[in-house]
Amino acid sequence: DFYKILGVPRSASIKDIKKAYRKLALQLHPDRNPDDPQAQEKFQDLGAAYEVLSDSEKRKQYD
């Protein structure tokens, strides 16, 4: 669930989604977690979630 990945409720605004994405991107970035083999995958999932939820048309289709 993309909302769960970003840690935001379904009613979150685009601004809230962007804020959550930036915070998590810093935490999950593979360069900051060189010892975590799943860091790259988590970071890619985060990017996919943000791409869908930050675009109003894609978000409507997802919901």
Rank of each mutant, 00 (worst) to 15 (best):
R59Q: 00
L24C: 09
D35L: 09
L6A: 02
L24P: 01
Q61G: 11
I5H: 06
Q38L: 13
I17F: 00
R59D: 00
K15Y: 12
S13E: 12
F43M: 08
K4Q: 08
N33T: 05
K60R: 14
V52A: 12
N33F: 15
A20C: 06
K15S: 11
G7W: 00
A48T: 12
R22V: 12
N33V: 06
D35T: 15
V52I: 14
A48E: 15
K15Q: 13
Y50A: 02
R10W: 04
D45Y: 09
S13P: 12
S11W: 08
P37C: 08
I17T: 02
P9C: 12
V8R: 00
Y21Q: 03
E41D: 07
D31E: 10
L28R: 09
K23N: 08
L53Y: 00
K60L: 12
G47K: 12
L28G: 05
D55G: 02
L6T: 01
R32I: 10
S56R: 13
K60E: 13
R59G: 00
G47I: 13
K60A: 09
E41V: 10
Q38T: 09
K18C: 08
D31T: 12
G47F: 15
A12N: 00
A20R: 08
P34A: 14
K60M: 11
D55T: 09
L6K: 01
A49Y: 02
K58W: 03
A20S: 12
K19A: 14
H29L: 07
L6R: 01
D36R: 04
R22Q: 14
D45W: 08
K18M: 09
R32T: 10
A48R: 14
V8T: 03
A48S: 12
D36P: 01
Q38I: 05
P34L: 12
K15P: 11
A39Q: 05
Q61S: 07
P30R: 06
R22C: 11
I14V: 12
P34S: 10
R10H: 08
E51K: 12
Q61T: 08
D55N: 11
P9Y: 03
S13M: 07
N33Q: 06
L24W: 06
A12Q: 02
Y62S: 02
K58D: 01
V52M: 06
D45G: 11
Q44C: 07
L24G: 06
A39P: 01
Q38W: 09
L28E: 11
L46A: 09
Y50W: 08
G7N: 14
E51G: 09
A20K: 09
L24H: 08
L46V: 12
S13W: 00
K23L: 13
A39R: 08
Y3Q: 02
L53R: 00
R22K: 14
G47N: 08
N33A: 07
P9R: 10
Q44P: 01
D35A: 12
Y50C: 03
S11A: 08
A49T: 01
D55K: 07
K42I: 07
I17G: 02
S56C: 13
L24D: 04
I14D: 13
S11Q: 15
K4W: 03
A20G: 04
S11Y: 09
K15V: 13
A39K: 06
K15D: 10
D35Y: 08
D31Q: 08
K23V: 13
Q44H: 15
A25K: 15
H29K: 09
D1P: 00
Y21H: 07
K42Y: 02
F43Y: 15
P34C: 06
G7L: 01
F43D: 02
F2P: 04
K58I: 03
R22H: 13
D63V: 09
R10A: 15
R22M: 15
Y62E: 02
L28A: 07
L6I: 07
Q61F: 15
D36G: 04
Y50S: 00
K19M: 15
K42L: 07
D31V: 07
R59M: 01
R32V: 14
Q44I: 06
L26R: 12
A48M: 13
L6P: 02
D45L: 13
S13I: 02
Y62N: 01
I5D: 03
Q38C: 12
D31F: 04
L24Y: 06
F43Q: 04
A49C: 04
K19Y: 08
L28F: 11
Y50I: 05
P37V: 11
Q44G: 09
Q38G: 14
A25P: 00
L53V: 03
I5P: 01
R32W: 04
D31G: 12
Q61P: 01
K60D: 12
Q44M: 10
V52P: 02
G7D: 08
V52W: 06
S13K: 11
H29G: 06
K18S: 09
D55W: 01
L28I: 04
L46P: 00
G47A: 10
K18R: 15
Q38H: 08
K18I: 10
E57C: 07
D45K: 13
D31K: 12
R10K: 14
D1Q: 04
G7M: 04
S54G: 07
D36F: 04
K23I: 14
N33S: 11
D1M: 04
S56T: 14
L26Q: 10
K58F: 06
L46G: 01
Y21P: 03
F43E: 02
A20N: 12
P34Q: 14
N33Y: 04
V8H: 00
L26Y: 12
L46S: 01
E57D: 10
P37S: 11
L24T: 06
G7Y: 00
L24A: 10
S56W: 14
L6G: 02
G47L: 11
V8N: 00
P9Q: 12
P37K: 13
L53M: 05
D31P: 05
P34E: 06
K15N: 14
I5S: 04
S13R: 07
P30Q: 05
K15T: 13
I17R: 02
K42H: 11
K58N: 02
L53S: 01
L24K: 14
L26A: 15
G47T: 09
A25L: 11
E57Q: 10
E51H: 09
Q61I: 14
K19R: 15
L6N: 01
R22T: 14
Q61C: 10
D35E: 11
Y21K: 04
S13F: 02
P34K: 13
E57G: 14
D36I: 06
S13H: 09
L26F: 14
D55R: 05
I14S: 14
A48Q: 13
Q61V: 14
Y21W: 06
D1E: 12
L53F: 00
L28T: 09
L6Q: 00
F43V: 05
L24M: 09
E41F: 04
A25G: 06
P9L: 09
F43A: 04
A20M: 07
D45N: 15
F43G: 02
H29F: 03
A25C: 05
R59K: 08
V8L: 08
A25W: 12
P37I: 07
I17C: 04
K4N: 13
V52C: 09
L53W: 03
K23A: 08
R59E: 01
Y21T: 02
K58L: 08
P9S: 13
P30E: 08
D31H: 07
G47V: 12
K42C: 06
K42A: 12
D35I: 06
K58P: 00
R59A: 02
P37R: 10
F2M: 07
E51Y: 03
F43P: 00
K19C: 15
R10D: 11
A48K: 14
S11G: 15
I5L: 13
Y50M: 08
Q27H: 05
K60G: 15
G47E: 12
F43H: 12
K19G: 15
R59W: 00
Q61K: 15
K4S: 11
N33I: 05
P34H: 11
A20Q: 12
Y62C: 02
Q38D: 15
L53I: 03
I17D: 02
R59I: 00
L28V: 10
F2T: 03
I5E: 07
N33E: 03
P37F: 06
Y21E: 03
E41L: 09
E51A: 11
A48C: 07
R32G: 09
A49R: 00
